[in-house]
Deep mutational scan, measured.
Amino acid sequence: PDDEWKERLREAEEKNNWKLFEELARKAGVSEEKIEEWKRRWS
């Protein structure tokens, strides 16, 4: 299951679909801290 969400995150990233990325990350149990960090790195 871990690989599956990583794959989906990669797809979201490729499409630059931040909303989807964020949603998937939350569902995968990624901390808000980590998500914010990704946001900063991404923008």
Results as ranks from 00 to 15, higher is better:
12 A>T: 04
14 E>Y: 09
35 I>N: 00
19 K>A: 14
30 V>L: 11
8 R>E: 07
29 G>Y: 00
4 E>G: 10
41 R>W: 15
40 R>Q: 14
30 V>R: 00
34 K>Y: 07
30 V>F: 15
43 S>G: 14
13 E>H: 15
39 K>W: 09
21 F>L: 06
2 D>W: 13
23 E>Y: 09
3 D>K: 09
40 R>P: 05
16 N>S: 07
6 K>S: 12
39 K>M: 06
17 N>V: 06
34 K>N: 06
1 P>I: 14
5 W>S: 06
24 L>G: 02
42 W>Q: 03
42 W>L: 06
2 D>F: 15
23 E>R: 02
15 K>C: 11
6 K>Q: 13
27 K>Q: 12
4 E>R: 10
37 E>N: 02
41 R>M: 15
20 L>R: 08
9 L>K: 03
21 F>K: 01
18 W>I: 04
40 R>I: 09
20 L>M: 11
17 N>K: 07
32 E>C: 12
38 W>G: 01
29 G>S: 01
38 W>V: 09
19 K>W: 10
13 E>P: 06
37 E>W: 06
9 L>V: 05
41 R>Y: 14
2 D>S: 12
33 E>I: 05
33 E>S: 10
34 K>Q: 15
1 P>E: 13
38 W>S: 03
32 E>L: 06
23 E>N: 04
11 E>V: 05
33 E>L: 05
40 R>M: 10
43 S>I: 14
6 K>W: 15
28 A>T: 02
27 K>I: 11
38 W>C: 15
3 D>Y: 10
24 L>H: 03
34 K>E: 13
22 E>H: 03
40 R>A: 12
16 N>R: 10
22 E>D: 03
32 E>S: 07
28 A>F: 11
13 E>T: 13
12 A>W: 07
9 L>Y: 08
9 L>Q: 03
23 E>G: 02
6 K>C: 15
25 A>Q: 01
15 K>I: 07
40 R>K: 14
13 E>V: 15
42 W>N: 02
18 W>Y: 03
35 I>L: 09
34 K>V: 14
27 K>F: 07
21 F>I: 04
9 L>I: 08
7 E>I: 08
36 E>G: 03
8 R>W: 07
35 I>Y: 02
6 K>I: 14
16 N>M: 08
29 G>Q: 02
13 E>S: 14
19 K>T: 12
6 K>H: 11
31 S>G: 04
34 K>A: 11
40 R>C: 14
2 D>P: 12
37 E>M: 03
26 R>L: 05
7 E>G: 08
40 R>N: 14
14 E>R: 13
20 L>G: 07
41 R>G: 08
27 K>E: 10
37 E>P: 00
38 W>H: 09
19 K>N: 11
40 R>T: 12
24 L>K: 03
25 A>T: 01
41 R>H: 13
21 F>D: 00
18 W>S: 01
37 E>D: 09
23 E>C: 14
5 W>K: 04
34 K>G: 02
15 K>E: 10
